[in-house]
Design a protein around this nucleic acid. Sequence first.
RNA 1: GGGCGCGUAGCUCAGUUGGUUAGAGCAUCUGCUUUACACGCAGAGGGUCCGGGGUUCGAAUCCCUGCGCGCCCACCA
Length: 884
Amino acid sequence: MQLEKTYEPNRFEPHWAQWWIDSQLFRAIAKPSAKVFSLVIPPPNVTGSLHIGHMLEHTEIDVTIRWHRMLGEETLWLPGTDHAGIATQMVVERKLAEEGLNRIELGREEFEKRVWQWKAQYGDTIKRQMVRLGASCDWSRERFTLDPGLSRAVREVFVQLYEKGLIYRGEYMINWCPRCLTALSDLEVSHTETDGSLWHLRYPVTGVPGRSVTVATTRPETMLGDTAVAINPKDERYLNLHGHTVQLPLMDREIPIILDELADPEFGTGVVKVTPAHDLNDFEAGRRHNLPKIQVIDDHGVMTEAAGPYAGLDRFEARKRVLADLEKSGVLVKTEPYKLNLGKCDRCKTVVEPLISTQWFVKTKPLAEKAIEAAESGRIVFIPANWKKTYDEWMYNIRDWCISRQLWWGHRIPAWHCSECHEIIVAREVPKACSRCGSGELKQDTDVLDTWFSSGLWPFSTLGWPDQTEDLAAFYPTSLLITGFDILFFWVARMAMLGIEFMGDVPFRQVYIHGLVRDADKQKMSKTRGNTIDPLVVTEKYGTDAVRMALLQGAAPGTDIVLTEQRMESSRAFANKIWNAARFLFMSMERSAVEPWVPESLETFTPEPDLDTMAVAIEDRWIFSRLNTCADQVNRAIETYRYHEVAQLLWHFFWHEFCDWYIELKKLRFRENSGLDSGWRNTLAAFENALRLLHPAMPFLTEELWQRLATDRATRPVSISIALYPQYRAGLTDFAAEREIEIVQEIVTMARNLRTEAKLDPKQQLAATLYSRGPGLEVAQRHAEPIQKLANIKLAFKAEAAPKAPVIRSTAAFDLVFEVPASQEEAQRKRQGKDCEQLVKNIANSERQLTDDTFLSRAPAHIVDSIRQKLAEYKAQAEKLGCL
RNA sequence: GGGCGCGUAGCUCAGUUGGUUAGAGCAUCUGCUUUACACGCAGAGGGUCCGGGGUUCGAAUCCCUGCGCGCCCACCA
């Protein structure tokens, strides 16, 4: 069984990936008692490229799923990525743009037909991406927006909310995108600070010659729709004008002066123009004072008939004309630069227009109260915990949620309008006749629902709700949601509210919020910046496992992740390192004609160290002890979502303990007795354990090697992913063995240091003497063979204090002296000078503390003791080097 | 305007409840074609823990403050 010299990820990874696609197979092989079930939905951004952020998400999710699967626990992991509806929408957006099509021109039927085509076409891309990420993927449950099951759940929720009075239809000021021709929720509008101007306009007071009020505005074109001017009731400057009217310039309309809090005496002149049809505050003020609403800008951002001479102009063009005319007539008294927060459509960046419109709303306050309580009582826990604050902040200040969209794609609102009596009927099924007048002339509302409405139902709609299915009983609530903070409000908050409302319990117990992936310049990755890393490209280049590892290394809770190719490159090196460790083991096995070991049965498949040979082989006792510690730490790290720590622990253990020391020590042993040895079993067991430990992080590589480790597949789990995950076992920790190997490492390292520092020939075997009066000398003597070979020296041992020597290296327990010609002593002397400096500093420091009475009286005893002990060691070493 | 977070080696970051000489990976430098691996091996150098103040026997860690950076929320003309 020969392995190639270099690990080629692309040869192995897709192979096992394919195996994972079919979750039915997984169910068949999993332990019957295990209710491990995962719902992974396709990442949304299949257009430009899959967002690398979702790759991080999927990796974290997959690590956690695999870990739990290996623990055989009954859990549902709810992976958190955007829902399939969005994925489809992204495809649709792109295809429409590419093919120069327009939804409206296509017509609904034709449009939907195309969408299904595109979905089929892109489905494979999505699948491939998922597969390469190593995510387990339940394709039998793939959900797209038009899924009949989901549609049913959406209708059910809508109707129930409506019946409870939590959904209403109302005229309100909404954010309108004149390009997308749809309403937007507050969350879909992003504000950017923009340089604008504040124009001061003078409105003459009717019937009072020479008297006028000056108002300030950032949007002069809206003045065409002014229906009042407001002054603050407390503002004495203008109180005498109350009851008067002003003459609206350009339109020659008489409008009242009203008293309203809207006007801030501190701002500008203290007088504000009121345009109820084009500004939310004005809209509300208009309601309070029963003002007429004059809409001067239409859905397309074009001036209406009401704008008089400006009708038909684009809103920005109208602004220019209005300003020019105002200036001409002397109404414009001042223009000053002003910074304003301009709301733009999230998707198309068009400046949003506040418009009055009839929309469907969800009354969110009652829902939010329960959601707040859930987080308060700890039924929902955020990790890191400070995200609760952000969640609360939003929940407490929640506003009603505009859920109707004037898009073509999505769930249609289950409401029908009677053409006769204008009654609105909300129903689960298409009604046959108007419930009021009995007319058969019914038209379904043309609006569709905000996609986040259906996404908010995801935790239960995917499980068959409103039917009381087995899945629903088993998997609601789920244990964990992993997601990014960018959709905390969009998705997490809505799932919480709707889940509690309809299921009577929270949808998930824990919410793990991960960071954002950034590029090397710390920029958020985005399509518009063009700095996205295409997962397909990098996984092709470095391998899926390497990319996963690179992501995990940065995945500390609460911080963003900077992903660089450099990091992926070093992860690939790590994969290759493991591959080669296996290669060495397999080659050695072959050379010694060792049969791959075959476990007796599936039930007893828990590779154990062979205790008899362990007693002889110190490195076996050591590696199992280290493995045990590592398993313990890794388990705890995954449990607390400290993925970066998981990566670091595994990396260090595999590379710097297993490869650097264990294999090197084993090499020596294999060379001296080439025949079959029961010690093999320990080596393979250690490797096998390590592979299992690594599996969640690097599934493909470990699976491949694990499959090759034993030949008899009939008697063992078919996959490493359902083998047991190594756990801490008290019996395996062996401090004595650890101490002994530490001594070996210490001496070998000393020797290597000394050799390099003294610029000695690395190939020449040098004579050296090891001095020590402690018990360590006996241990060193016992392991003289490996020490001498690893350090390439010939050692003599002396149980006495070291003499002053030119080429010496000391630690607390040992002094190592090289016998070298006088000519090579100079380099070493320089080095020792540096060591001395440090030692003298340390001694001074310790002595200062130990003569400080307050320290001695207040610091705990063990701290004082440790400093005393340290001081003695520093002094001893300084003496050996001749520093004092 | 409100809220959150960050500032530690050249770069990207760790640093658990305050306690020896502050760690890792990458990069840099030196030496090695050692038959598992040059995607490697063995070593080395590199830090005023953003500045200032305070609490403490003791601060990268806790408190205050200044500077710099980022994010989220918000209807003020």
